[in-house]
Design a protein around this nucleic acid. Sequence first.
RNA 1: GGUACCAUCGCCAAGUGGUAAGGCAAAGGUCUGCAAAACCUUUAUUCCCCGGUUCAAAUCCGGGUGGUACCU
Length: 303
Amino acid sequence: MKKVVFILGPTAVGKSYFGILLAKKFNGEIISADSVQVYKGLDIGSAKQLDTHGVTHHCIDILSPFDEFSAYDFVELTKKKIDEISNRGHLPIVVGGTGLYIKALTLGYNFGGVEKDENLRKSLEEILNKDGLEKLVEMLEKTDKSVLEKIDTKNPVRVLRALEIALSNGEKAQSKNDIQPLVIALFKDREKLYADINRRVDEMICDGLFEEVENLKKMGLTKENQSMHAIGYKETLDYLDGLISKERCVELIKQHTRNYAKRQMTFLKGMECEFVDAENRETAFNKIENMVGEFLNGRVESN
RNA sequence: GGUACCAUCGCCAAGUGGUAAGGCAAAGGUCUGCAAAACCUUUAUUCCCCGGUUCAAAUCCGGGUGGUACCU
């Protein structure tokens, strides 16, 4: 069992800061669990740390913005990274806000053991557009009735994936998981977090978010690309295309980031983790430092 | 000062006599291969104020207040 520390929390709460401090203190390496920072060229809008303070970071800038990436890819990649880091005698510290990635990793999800099937997806999406979601649910009813009560039949994404699994005959691969996690979730008073978010978005604009997106657009990226679904990018593309005003664009980025932070907090509530108030960075770090110290000495059994 | 039009949730807005649509925002939640995604739930006992007509008024009438447009 490899010990792994997780630093989670909503966007703009200060995860990167604590991660770097912790890595320095405990001879650690950071694995980013962020579905947007994996992309090269998405720097300002994803709040990528420009200064890593000499700490090794993994899973950042590993993909072209034209590539696709999934929670499954993240888990597979990260398991390897954890092995490597542990073998080096370092502490793996997973820092990120993408809840599903962490949940999948800590709980050893196997994601149904069935790969994504582009062709099948395309045909299913055609049915969705033509006959509606009801048709897909009907199909699911015929192939695998048992999943119907487990999934949200009003959510196209869920129904599509359930069908993908039901219609495939691939082997159900198991995802082995031999990590011992210490999951720390940072939080902050809602009002303060929202104020921080608004301020950070303004900073992103000053730092050249619009120019960054303009460059990506020139490279040929559109809203069709997965990487451009990210907050800050989809809105800016609309602005650059003249669909919304600059003011509206900034307002929307702030709003969507706030909504996202709220969803992240809801997700964390449902997870087994230690909550730490990040308001006062010094006290928060002392607390985290103690928790990690005890964890490494084997006195804390988490999960 | 005169005339016309308008006033419905934080915002946009339907409703023209029968007991307040919808969208956005907000709040809460869900989550096993796009998760910064996708989806679900909740949210006006009341329609600017006062009075009147009526079994019944956001809807009709009178007055007040506020806004907009045009005229002088």
